[in-house]
Design a protein around this nucleic acid. Structure first.
Lengths: 144, 144
DNA sequence: CTTGATTTTGAAAATAATTTTTATTATCAT
DNA sequence: ATGATAATAAAAATTATTTTCAAAATCAAG
């Protein structure tokens, strides 16, 4: 899905819920689409402020909640005490390797694991909406 | 590993680090060993207080950090804003299904996934120390 | 057993992150 | 344009975690 399509998705969602489009929301969404990392609210606010210095933390917070609700962004916690947001990938899901020494985050994806997850969930009579697979350890540089 | 062995492990760790054994630590560790859930500090404190009402939150907090350091407990965050502690299983690793409606947590384990993870990490030149696999969705009761 | 250096404790304070409140401003269907 | 409603920024409140500090407990060495 292109980012323009995602923006349309958001517009549709807003309209359905009787919410309004605002310049702030647009600015925040634009800034988010320009990122490709796992960004924290703090970091995103900094980015947005470069374009629109008057924007407040709370607005960024609320907008990211919105994006999460309508399935455009994903909330993640890697255990450093900060919630981070990332893009929901179109088709396939990706997972993470997190280096516990330097904090480097690498992404990977694996269809076999996805299938196994589905099998497991079926057995437990559980309907999976989303999942997280995180490998914690040392990246090549930090594993001495 | 039996809980008595784990307690020995902790004693050894304390001694190595020049730390001291105290009744509070024993009480907290005992309470933790009696749990089989993913317990929050709040909940654990409540449990411990039934045996030793004078114990404080900070002591529970610090003791669980200790247990985490020496590899007896594991810190987890399921996205509800509270850190939870669980036992590190002896041999095999287990993962979680979390119902996003009622909060129910189910555990499962799957060796095939473990192996696949190892393969992936090898390709990325990453040394896995620990991992988390969480499936978020609806349990049978909540999926209407 | 005492001593005394060091660690631990509980309570409270500090920090940090998230969430809510509020008065004001902006949006948008009519 | 109007007016009902939602959104905003800033500040305050809330929540969870972490640190501080004076008093108490531990424990190795005498």
């Amino acid at each position: 899905m292109k980012s323009t399509d995602k923006k349309e998705l958001l517009q549709k969602y807003l309209h359905e819920k009787g919410l309004k489009s605002t310049v702030q929301r647009d600015d925040i969404v634009d800034a988010f689409f320009k990122t490709n990392t796992h960004i924290s609210l703090e970091e995103l606010l900094k980015k947005v402020k470069r374009k629109n210095p008057k924007i407040g933390y709370a607005t960024v917070y609320r907008t990211m909640k919105l994006l999460t609700e309508c399935g455009i962004a994903l909330e993640r916690q890697f255990g450093d005490g900060q919630t981070r947001y990332e893009h929901i990938p179109d088709d396939s899901h990706h997972d993470h390797c997190i280096c516990v020494r330097c904090g480097k985050i690498m992404e990977f994806e694996n269809q076999k694991i996805e299938h196994l997850q589905k099998d497991i969930a079926d057995k437990l009579d559980f309907t999976v909406m989303n999942h997280k697979l995180e490998l914690y350890g040392f990246c090549s540089k930090c594993a001495d």
